[in-house]
Amino acid sequence: MSFRREFLKGLWEEIPVFRVVLGLCPTLAVSTSLENGLGMGLAATFVLTCSNVVISLLRKYIPSKVRIPCFIIVAATFVTLVDLFMNGFAHQLHKNLGIFIPLIVVNCIILGRAEAFAARNTAWLSLADGLGMGLGFTLALAAVSAIRETIGNGSLTLWKGFGWHLPGYQPILLLILAPGGFIVLGCILALMNRMEARRAARKGRAYAPPPAMDCRHCIICKWGE
């Protein structure tokens, strides 16, 4: 259990959207352009890291019967703090990210990591977990939104007015509409499963889908054991 390992697992092995299949709601909603995907990802990373550290520091004082409301209070407080301070002191940034910030409260990755990791590990490791999971979420969002924006809009915008546009390309609008989110996400999941299956076959092992995709192994149900 090293800092490095906890950090890296969020980037591939347990990458939130693709492997753990958490946080689908914001993924499908905001992945219409790369700029939005990155914005949402980074804002969520910040809140996730803060709430992970705080929950991990307080874990000895939180009775398990009321842990969920306590986690939600911590996450909601951080989200509101970020919202207020960003609005007051980085107004332009807040205008760009404003719609995503309230969405972070209901991002199940925050609650999921609090429950599955921060509540039973030290603050130092929880920091690594928060950073790794947050960046993994950002990476996943960036991947989905880059594909959707390129095909669905014929452009790729990194930040306000900084990006490029495919000239003469007739965009497939479906990709930036709601169904496009599901289609792209499904294709990526299938691709990742295939890659994992091939890797397993090379090593002569049978491939099993990630535990988080299988309800019998759900960590949340195992809390009481």
Partner: peptide, 17 residues
């Protein structure tokens, strides 16, 4: 604690906002 924190943040940021 959450309430106090938010009250403080609100006070600090209301003028800049």
């Amino acid at each position: 604690v959450a309430g106090l924190l938010l009250a403080w943040a609100n006070q600090v940021t209301s003028d800049p906002i």
